[in-house]
Design a protein around this nucleic acid. Sequence first.
DNA 1: GTATTAAATGCAATTGATTTGCATTATCAA
DNA 2: TTGATAATGCAAATCAATTGCATTTAATAC
Lengths: 143, 143
Amino acid sequence: MHDFLFPREILKKRKLKNTRQRRAILKLMSAENMPLSAKEIYYKIKDNNPHLKLSTIYRNLNVFEKNNIVRKLNINNVTESYFELIKENHHHHLICISCGHIQDIECPFDDYLDKLEKKNNYEVTDHRLTVYGICHQCKKDDK
Amino acid sequence: MHDFLFPREILKKRKLKNTRQRRAILKLMSAENMPLSAKEIYYKIKDNNPHLKLSTIYRNLNVFEKNNIVRKLNINNVTESYFELIKENHHHHLICISCGHIQDIECPFDDYLDKLEKKNNYEVTDHRLTVYGICHQCKKDDK
DNA sequence: GTATTAAATGCAATTGATTTGCATTATCAA
DNA sequence: TTGATAATGCAAATCAATTGCATTTAATAC
Ligand SMILES: [Mn+2]
Ligand SMILES: [Mn+2]
Ligand SMILES: [Zn+2]
Ligand SMILES: [Zn+2]
Protein backbone atom coordinates (compact mmCIF):
# COMPACT_ATOMS: atom_id res chain seq x y z
CA MET A 1 0.00 0.00 0.00
CA HIS A 2 2.39 2.69 1.17
CA ASP A 3 6.11 2.35 0.89
CA PHE A 4 7.87 5.40 2.18
CA LEU A 5 8.99 5.83 5.77
CA PHE A 6 11.12 8.58 7.22
CA PRO A 7 14.56 7.46 8.35
CA ARG A 8 13.59 7.84 12.00
CA GLU A 9 10.56 5.62 11.47
CA ILE A 10 12.61 2.99 9.69
CA LEU A 11 15.04 2.91 12.59
CA LYS A 12 12.39 2.92 15.28
CA LYS A 13 10.56 0.05 13.65
CA ARG A 14 13.76 -2.04 13.86
CA LYS A 15 14.66 -0.79 17.35
CA LEU A 16 17.90 0.68 16.03
CA LYS A 17 19.38 3.78 17.59
CA ASN A 18 18.29 6.90 15.82
CA THR A 19 21.63 8.57 15.16
CA ARG A 20 22.42 11.57 13.01
CA GLN A 21 24.67 9.40 10.86
CA ARG A 22 22.08 6.75 10.21
CA ARG A 23 19.48 9.33 9.34
CA ALA A 24 21.87 10.96 6.89
CA ILE A 25 22.63 7.67 5.16
CA LEU A 26 19.00 6.64 4.88
CA LYS A 27 17.91 10.08 3.74
CA LEU A 28 20.49 10.08 0.98
CA MET A 29 19.66 6.57 -0.18
CA SER A 30 16.01 7.44 -0.26
CA ALA A 31 16.61 10.66 -2.19
CA GLU A 32 18.91 9.07 -4.75
CA ASN A 33 16.65 6.07 -5.15
CA MET A 34 19.25 3.94 -6.87
CA PRO A 35 21.94 1.50 -5.80
CA LEU A 36 24.97 3.29 -4.33
CA SER A 37 28.37 2.17 -3.16
CA ALA A 38 29.65 3.02 0.30
CA LYS A 39 32.05 5.52 -1.22
CA GLU A 40 29.35 7.18 -3.27
CA ILE A 41 27.29 7.61 -0.14
CA TYR A 42 30.34 8.92 1.66
CA TYR A 43 31.12 11.64 -0.87
CA LYS A 44 27.52 12.70 -1.33
CA ILE A 45 27.01 12.99 2.42
CA LYS A 46 30.31 14.63 3.26
CA ASP A 47 29.43 18.30 2.94
CA ASN A 48 26.58 18.16 5.41
CA ASN A 49 28.31 15.69 7.73
CA PRO A 50 32.02 16.47 7.77
CA HIS A 51 32.78 14.02 10.61
CA LEU A 52 30.91 11.05 9.21
CA LYS A 53 33.51 8.41 8.45
CA LEU A 54 33.51 5.79 5.73
CA SER A 55 33.82 3.08 8.37
CA THR A 56 30.60 4.29 9.94
CA ILE A 57 28.89 3.95 6.59
CA TYR A 58 30.17 0.42 6.16
CA ARG A 59 29.16 -0.50 9.69
CA ASN A 60 25.69 0.86 9.22
CA LEU A 61 25.15 -0.64 5.81
CA ASN A 62 25.92 -3.97 7.40
CA VAL A 63 23.49 -3.28 10.22
CA PHE A 64 20.87 -2.19 7.71
CA GLU A 65 21.40 -5.32 5.67
CA LYS A 66 20.94 -7.56 8.69
CA ASN A 67 17.75 -5.68 9.50
CA ASN A 68 16.35 -5.93 6.01
CA ILE A 69 16.55 -2.22 5.37
CA VAL A 70 19.02 -2.45 2.50
CA ARG A 71 20.09 -5.11 0.04
CA LYS A 72 23.68 -5.57 -1.03
CA LEU A 73 24.26 -6.04 -4.76
CA ASN A 74 27.27 -7.64 -6.38
CA ILE A 75 27.70 -6.50 -9.90
CA ASN A 76 29.83 -8.47 -12.34
CA ASN A 77 33.26 -6.97 -12.89
CA VAL A 78 32.69 -4.24 -10.32
CA THR A 79 34.82 -4.43 -7.20
CA GLU A 80 32.68 -2.44 -4.77
CA SER A 81 29.35 -3.60 -3.42
CA TYR A 82 26.27 -1.55 -4.09
CA PHE A 83 23.41 -1.01 -1.70
CA GLU A 84 19.80 -0.08 -2.22
CA LEU A 85 16.89 0.45 0.11
CA ILE A 86 14.57 -2.51 0.13
CA LYS A 87 11.21 -1.43 -1.20
CA GLU A 88 7.90 -3.19 -1.13
CA ASN A 89 8.19 -4.47 -4.65
CA HIS A 90 10.66 -7.25 -5.01
CA HIS A 91 12.56 -6.81 -8.26
CA HIS A 92 15.79 -7.43 -10.14
CA HIS A 93 18.23 -5.39 -12.19
CA LEU A 94 19.16 -4.65 -15.75
CA ILE A 95 22.65 -3.16 -15.92
CA CYS A 96 24.43 -1.44 -18.79
CA ILE A 97 27.98 -2.77 -18.98
CA SER A 98 29.04 0.34 -20.85
CA CYS A 99 27.79 3.24 -18.70
CA GLY A 100 26.94 1.36 -15.52
CA HIS A 101 23.34 2.47 -15.41
CA ILE A 102 21.13 0.22 -13.30
CA GLN A 103 17.42 -0.10 -13.74
CA ASP A 104 14.83 -2.19 -11.98
CA ILE A 105 13.08 -5.03 -13.76
CA GLU A 106 10.15 -7.10 -12.57
CA CYS A 107 10.72 -10.53 -11.14
CA PRO A 108 9.76 -12.95 -13.89
CA PHE A 109 9.17 -15.89 -11.55
CA ASP A 110 5.79 -17.14 -10.65
CA ASP A 111 5.78 -20.75 -9.50
CA TYR A 112 9.29 -21.49 -10.73
CA LEU A 113 10.90 -21.22 -7.30
CA ASP A 114 8.30 -23.46 -5.65
CA LYS A 115 8.95 -26.10 -8.25
CA LEU A 116 12.69 -25.74 -7.82
CA GLU A 117 12.32 -26.15 -4.07
CA LYS A 118 10.42 -29.38 -4.39
CA LYS A 119 12.48 -30.80 -7.20
CA ASN A 120 15.76 -30.27 -5.33
CA ASN A 121 14.47 -30.75 -1.81
CA TYR A 122 15.69 -27.32 -0.84
CA GLU A 123 14.25 -24.60 1.30
CA VAL A 124 14.68 -21.60 -0.97
CA THR A 125 15.38 -18.39 0.93
CA ASP A 126 16.53 -15.88 -1.67
CA HIS A 127 17.25 -15.45 -5.34
CA ARG A 128 19.06 -12.96 -7.54
CA LEU A 129 18.64 -12.26 -11.19
CA THR A 130 20.81 -9.74 -12.97
CA VAL A 131 20.71 -9.05 -16.68
CA TYR A 132 23.63 -7.32 -18.35
CA GLY A 133 23.61 -5.52 -21.64
CA ILE A 134 24.12 -2.30 -23.52
CA CYS A 135 21.56 0.43 -23.12
CA HIS A 136 19.98 2.36 -25.93
CA GLN A 137 22.07 5.47 -25.34
CA CYS A 138 25.37 3.56 -25.27
CA LYS A 139 24.45 1.70 -28.45
CA LYS A 140 23.92 5.03 -30.17
CA ASP A 141 27.09 6.59 -28.77
CA ASP A 142 29.11 3.64 -30.01
CA LYS A 143 28.24 4.25 -33.63
CA MET B 1 27.87 -32.83 -29.09
CA HIS B 2 31.09 -33.42 -27.20
CA ASP B 3 32.20 -31.24 -24.38
CA PHE B 4 35.48 -32.35 -22.95
CA LEU B 5 38.83 -31.11 -24.21
CA PHE B 6 42.24 -31.70 -22.74
CA PRO B 7 43.87 -28.62 -21.26
CA ARG B 8 46.35 -28.42 -24.11
CA GLU B 9 43.55 -28.51 -26.65
CA ILE B 10 41.64 -25.79 -24.82
CA LEU B 11 44.72 -23.59 -24.86
CA LYS B 12 45.62 -24.31 -28.46
CA LYS B 13 42.11 -23.50 -29.62
CA ARG B 14 42.44 -20.05 -28.03
CA LYS B 15 46.06 -19.57 -29.15
CA LEU B 16 47.20 -19.32 -25.55
CA LYS B 17 50.64 -20.51 -24.52
CA ASN B 18 50.57 -24.06 -23.31
CA THR B 19 52.37 -23.72 -20.00
CA ARG B 20 52.72 -26.26 -17.21
CA GLN B 21 50.90 -23.90 -14.87
CA ARG B 22 47.92 -23.43 -17.13
CA ARG B 23 47.61 -27.12 -17.74
CA ALA B 24 47.66 -27.77 -14.01
CA ILE B 25 44.91 -25.23 -13.32
CA LEU B 26 42.68 -26.50 -16.11
CA LYS B 27 43.27 -30.11 -15.20
CA LEU B 28 42.28 -29.47 -11.62
CA MET B 29 39.18 -27.48 -12.52
CA SER B 30 38.12 -30.19 -14.88
CA ALA B 31 38.66 -32.91 -12.30
CA GLU B 32 36.87 -31.11 -9.50
CA ASN B 33 34.05 -30.10 -11.79
CA MET B 34 32.67 -27.46 -9.45
CA PRO B 35 33.24 -23.75 -8.85
CA LEU B 36 36.52 -23.10 -7.04
CA SER B 37 38.15 -20.01 -5.61
CA ALA B 38 41.69 -19.02 -6.59
CA LYS B 39 42.90 -20.09 -3.15
CA GLU B 40 41.20 -23.45 -3.36
CA ILE B 41 42.89 -24.06 -6.68
CA TYR B 42 46.17 -22.93 -5.19
CA TYR B 43 46.10 -25.33 -2.26
CA LYS B 44 44.88 -28.27 -4.28
CA ILE B 45 47.57 -27.76 -6.90
CA LYS B 46 50.44 -27.00 -4.54
CA ASP B 47 51.83 -30.47 -3.91
CA ASN B 48 52.40 -31.23 -7.55
CA ASN B 49 53.47 -27.71 -8.44
CA PRO B 50 55.43 -26.24 -5.55
CA HIS B 51 56.48 -23.14 -7.47
CA LEU B 52 53.09 -22.21 -8.84
CA LYS B 53 52.17 -18.89 -7.24
CA LEU B 54 48.75 -17.59 -6.33
CA SER B 55 49.36 -14.57 -8.52
CA THR B 56 49.85 -16.86 -11.49
CA ILE B 57 46.51 -18.44 -10.75
CA TYR B 58 44.80 -15.07 -10.59
CA ARG B 59 46.48 -13.95 -13.77
CA ASN B 60 45.46 -17.07 -15.62
CA LEU B 61 41.92 -17.10 -14.33
CA ASN B 62 41.60 -13.61 -15.74
CA VAL B 63 43.06 -14.72 -19.05
CA PHE B 64 40.73 -17.71 -19.08
CA GLU B 65 37.76 -15.51 -18.33
CA LYS B 66 38.58 -13.17 -21.20
CA ASN B 67 38.91 -16.19 -23.47
CA ASN B 68 35.62 -17.72 -22.39
CA ILE B 69 37.23 -20.70 -20.77
CA VAL B 70 36.02 -19.96 -17.26
CA ARG B 71 33.19 -17.94 -15.75
CA LYS B 72 33.61 -15.90 -12.59
CA LEU B 73 30.86 -16.25 -10.01
CA ASN B 74 30.02 -13.80 -7.26
CA ILE B 75 28.24 -15.46 -4.40
CA ASN B 76 26.26 -13.44 -1.90
CA ASN B 77 28.08 -12.89 1.38
CA VAL B 78 31.21 -14.60 0.12
CA THR B 79 34.24 -12.39 -0.34
CA GLU B 80 36.25 -14.42 -2.84
CA SER B 81 35.23 -14.99 -6.42
CA TYR B 82 34.62 -18.49 -7.65
CA PHE B 83 35.48 -19.83 -11.06
CA GLU B 84 34.14 -22.70 -13.10
CA LEU B 85 34.96 -24.07 -16.49
CA ILE B 86 32.41 -23.01 -19.07
CA LYS B 87 30.63 -26.06 -20.38
CA GLU B 88 28.38 -26.44 -23.32
CA ASN B 89 25.21 -26.23 -21.33
CA HIS B 90 24.47 -22.77 -20.08
CA HIS B 91 23.10 -23.00 -16.55
CA HIS B 92 22.70 -21.28 -13.20
CA HIS B 93 23.30 -22.16 -9.57
CA LEU B 94 21.47 -23.24 -6.46
CA ILE B 95 23.59 -22.58 -3.39
CA CYS B 96 23.14 -23.77 0.18
CA ILE B 97 23.73 -20.85 2.53
CA SER B 98 24.49 -23.26 5.34
CA CYS B 99 27.12 -25.60 3.90
CA GLY B 100 28.07 -23.69 0.77
CA HIS B 101 27.30 -26.50 -1.61
CA ILE B 102 26.72 -25.33 -5.17
CA GLN B 103 24.69 -27.21 -7.71
CA ASP B 104 23.79 -26.46 -11.28
CA ILE B 105 20.22 -25.66 -12.27
CA GLU B 106 18.78 -25.27 -15.73
CA CYS B 107 18.22 -21.84 -17.16
CA PRO B 108 14.49 -21.23 -16.86
CA PHE B 109 14.37 -18.57 -19.55
CA ASP B 110 12.98 -19.15 -22.95
CA ASP B 111 11.85 -15.99 -24.67
CA TYR B 112 11.98 -13.84 -21.54
CA LEU B 113 15.31 -12.22 -22.42
CA ASP B 114 14.25 -11.39 -25.96
CA LYS B 115 11.18 -9.67 -24.63
CA LEU B 116 13.22 -7.81 -22.04
CA GLU B 117 15.60 -6.64 -24.75
CA LYS B 118 12.82 -5.21 -26.87
CA LYS B 119 10.85 -3.76 -24.01
CA ASN B 120 13.83 -1.85 -22.63
CA ASN B 121 15.61 -1.18 -25.87
CA TYR B 122 18.70 -2.98 -24.62
CA GLU B 123 21.15 -5.30 -26.25
CA VAL B 124 21.30 -8.08 -23.68
CA THR B 125 24.72 -9.70 -23.42
CA ASP B 126 24.64 -11.80 -20.26
CA HIS B 127 22.47 -12.79 -17.34
CA ARG B 128 22.97 -14.40 -13.96
CA LEU B 129 20.48 -16.21 -11.81
CA THR B 130 21.43 -17.54 -8.40
CA VAL B 131 19.03 -19.19 -6.01
CA TYR B 132 19.95 -19.44 -2.33
CA GLY B 133 18.48 -21.80 0.20
CA ILE B 134 19.08 -24.60 2.64
CA CYS B 135 19.81 -28.03 1.28
CA HIS B 136 18.16 -31.23 2.40
CA GLN B 137 21.13 -32.37 4.45
CA CYS B 138 21.47 -29.05 6.29
CA LYS B 139 17.76 -28.98 7.06
CA LYS B 140 18.09 -32.38 8.68
CA ASP B 141 21.26 -31.50 10.59
CA ASP B 142 19.61 -28.43 11.98
CA LYS B 143 16.91 -30.39 13.77
C1' DG C 1 68.73 -28.57 -32.66
C1' DT C 2 69.58 -23.45 -32.12
C1' DA C 3 68.47 -18.75 -32.11
C1' DT C 4 64.95 -15.23 -31.57
C1' DT C 5 61.18 -12.94 -29.56
C1' DA C 6 57.11 -12.29 -27.14
C1' DA C 7 54.55 -13.88 -23.47
C1' DA C 8 54.27 -16.13 -18.89
C1' DT C 9 55.97 -16.74 -14.34
C1' DG C 10 58.06 -16.02 -9.67
C1' DC C 11 58.48 -13.06 -6.25
C1' DA C 12 57.74 -9.12 -3.57
C1' DA C 13 55.39 -5.13 -3.04
C1' DT C 14 51.15 -2.64 -3.62
C1' DT C 15 46.38 -1.55 -4.07
C1' DG C 16 41.74 -0.95 -2.69
C1' DA C 17 37.60 -2.43 -0.40
C1' DT C 18 36.16 -3.60 3.91
C1' DT C 19 36.75 -4.60 8.82
C1' DT C 20 38.27 -3.96 13.48
C1' DG C 21 40.20 -2.26 18.18
C1' DC C 22 39.78 1.08 21.28
C1' DA C 23 38.90 5.49 23.39
C1' DT C 24 35.23 8.78 23.29
C1' DT C 25 30.52 10.28 22.57
C1' DA C 26 25.59 9.95 21.95
C1' DT C 27 21.13 7.63 22.48
C1' DC C 28 17.50 6.01 25.16
C1' DA C 29 15.00 4.06 28.91
C1' DA C 30 14.40 4.36 33.74
C1' DT D 1 19.23 13.60 35.02
C1' DT D 2 21.59 9.56 35.17
C1' DG D 3 23.57 5.20 33.83
C1' DA D 4 24.00 1.45 30.79
C1' DT D 5 24.71 0.34 26.23
C1' DA D 6 25.46 0.98 21.59
C1' DA D 7 27.41 3.96 17.95
C1' DT D 8 31.08 6.71 16.22
C1' DG D 9 35.72 8.63 15.06
C1' DC D 10 40.03 7.52 14.07
C1' DA D 11 43.84 4.77 12.90
C1' DA D 12 45.48 0.47 11.98
C1' DA D 13 44.77 -4.01 10.14
C1' DT D 14 42.98 -7.48 7.03
C1' DC D 15 42.32 -9.79 2.87
C1' DA D 16 41.42 -10.55 -2.02
C1' DA D 17 43.34 -9.22 -6.05
C1' DT D 18 46.73 -6.74 -8.96
C1' DT D 19 51.17 -5.14 -10.57
C1' DG D 20 56.33 -4.10 -11.59
C1' DC D 21 60.27 -6.14 -12.77
C1' DA D 22 63.82 -9.58 -13.44
C1' DT D 23 63.98 -14.20 -15.11
C1' DT D 24 62.27 -18.17 -17.50
C1' DT D 25 59.75 -20.49 -21.01
C1' DA D 26 56.99 -21.55 -25.18
C1' DA D 27 56.48 -20.98 -29.95
C1' DT D 28 58.31 -20.04 -34.36
C1' DA D 29 61.68 -19.59 -37.88
C1' DC D 30 66.06 -20.96 -39.35
MN1 LIG E 1 16.57 -1.75 -7.58
MN1 LIG F 1 27.98 -24.64 -12.61
ZN1 LIG G 1 24.63 2.46 -20.99
ZN1 LIG H 1 23.63 -27.23 2.73
